[in-house]
Computed example of a mutant assay.
Amino acid sequence: MTELRLQRLSYGTRLRDADLTARPGETVGLVGPNGSGKTTLLRCVYGTLTPTAGRALLDGDDLTALGPKARARRIGVVPQEGATEFELTVRELVALGRSPHKRFWEGDDASDLARTEAALARVGIAELADRPYPTLSGGERQRALVARALVQEPALLVLDEPTNHLDIRYQLEVLCLVSELGTTNLLALHDLNLAAAYCDRLVVLERGRVVAEGTPADVLTSALLRAVYGVEAEVIPHPRTGTPTVFYLPGPPLEREPSAM
């Protein structure tokens, strides 16, 4: 099991001195308004951005010291938008997840094919294996991208808005799947009620800084929502699950203070 630890991680003015820990097997959700730094933080973790200060450690190893292939062997990524311009079948797309474990001239062997088929079955899209990826629905595409990440056999799974543009059924299916994988997970979410239901802990970002961290019950308060999001809301335990549920009150949004927290 894998632990991710961020120590004063910064990227210019977009992310400043972020501390974060995702413990082995834990699902940590990043929440905050648009432009708060969630995607920047994730990109610093999986390597499309290089931090300007601080460190990102995976089981004690500095991620910036790892080459792209070594990093990809340990971190699976489900981006906000998957590429649709290539006419790959779903099986071919998922099989690309084996690339970090192979030399560039090597083809797929029986073991690679078996892992691909197993990942397709695990996310429930085995019957779509021969379909062109661009023809899939939004929920099916997200499942295929999760399968591609699983084929990498990562210790850490990073997901950027995995429920974006999905209807509620697919949102629940994707988050349910992620929560059952057994990997350490770091994901950005906009929907606070989904974050409360599926994340062990939440990290709140506001203007590039971490302003709160803890369990959903500790973090999601009326005061925080007023300060960070500029909205009036009540937070009440769900009558069946006990998870905090946010009810937004009607009315115009509030003026946000220059420094919310």
Rank of each mutant, 00 (worst) to 15 (best):
L6E: 03
G12T: 08
T13I: 12
R14A: 15
L15K: 02
D17Q: 14
D19K: 09
L20N: 07
G25L: 04
E26W: 06
L30Q: 09
G32K: 13
S36V: 01
G37V: 08
G37H: 11
L41Q: 01
L42A: 03
L42S: 05
R43S: 03
C44R: 03
G47R: 01
G47I: 01
L49Y: 02
T52V: 02
A53G: 12
R55E: 06
R55F: 00
D59K: 00
G60I: 02
L63V: 03
T64Y: 00
K69H: 11
K69Y: 02
A70F: 00
R71H: 11
A72H: 01
R73C: 05
R73L: 07
R74P: 13
I75S: 00
G76I: 08
P79H: 08
E81C: 03
E81P: 00
A83Y: 08
T89C: 02
E92R: 13
E92K: 09
E92Q: 13
A95K: 00
R98S: 06
S99L: 13
A110S: 14
L113N: 05
E117F: 06
E117K: 03
R122Y: 05
V123K: 12
V123Y: 10
G124L: 02
A126W: 08
E127C: 03
L128P: 06
Y133A: 14
Y133M: 15
P134G: 12
S137T: 05
G138Y: 07
G139C: 14
A144W: 11
A144V: 06
L145A: 13
R148Q: 15
P154S: 14
A155M: 07
L156I: 12
L157V: 10
V158M: 10
P162W: 06
P162F: 05
T163S: 15
D167S: 10
I168E: 01
R169Q: 13
R169I: 04
Q171P: 02
Q171L: 02
L175P: 04
C176E: 12
S179P: 07
T184P: 07
L187D: 03
A188K: 03
A188P: 07
L189G: 04
H190L: 11
D191V: 09
L192P: 11
A195H: 14
C199T: 09
V203L: 15
V203W: 01
V204Q: 10
E206K: 11
E206W: 10
V210I: 15
A217R: 15
A217W: 04
V219Y: 06
T221H: 02
T221S: 13
A223T: 11
A223P: 00
L224N: 04
V228Q: 00
E232G: 13
I236L: 12
I236Q: 08
P237W: 06
P239L: 05
R240I: 09
T243C: 08
P244M: 13
V246W: 04
Y248T: 14
L249H: 07
E255N: 03
E255W: 02
R256W: 09
R256T: 14
S259P: 00
